[in-house]
């Protein structure tokens, strides 16, 4: 597959994630849209890793393997991020009995 198709697929997924973050008010849905954006980036990294493999595999047998390891590290960081984020949302729900992000306005005062 030409790399264009993967770029446009990832851009579409990323922009759907951005639109979701901007349109929803439920804090957990916003969080899920962020996960969607992370996964779009992961897909693009894997596609680029295979692109480099195709271009350079004649001279370097493991060309492009770094991209897949980056995806692995992104998954590790995302797992840690989700656990902390959900803990913060649960704490916010316990205090306000709502997961509406507009309630966080009170942080201003």
């Amino acid at each position: 597959m030409p790399i264009n198709y993967y770029i446009f697929l990832s851009v579409a997924l990323f922009c759907i994630g951005v639109a979701g973050v901007l349109t929803r008010r439920n804090a957990i849905i916003i969080f899920m849209c962020v996960e969607l954006m992370l996964n779009a980036v992961n897909l693009l990294l894997v596609a680029f890793s295979k692109m480099h493999y195709h271009a350079l595999s004649a001279t370097a047998p493991h060309a492009g393997i770094d991209g897949q390891l980056f995806v692995f590290f992104i998954m590790v960081v995302a797992a840690a991020e989700v656990s902390v984020g959900l803990a913060i949302i649960v704490m916010m729900y316990r205090n306000t009995h709502s997961i509406d992000v507009n309630f966080l306005n009170r942080l201003k005062h």
Binding site: F8, V11, M51
Partner: peptide, 18 residues
């Protein structure tokens, strides 16, 4: 991205063991 010249770049399938 439409302007970028990527016609020759291919994300290869069905080959490679990385």
């Amino acid at each position: 991205l439409k302007q970028a010249d990527l016609k020759t770049k291919i994300a290869e399938m069905n080959r490679g063991d990385i």
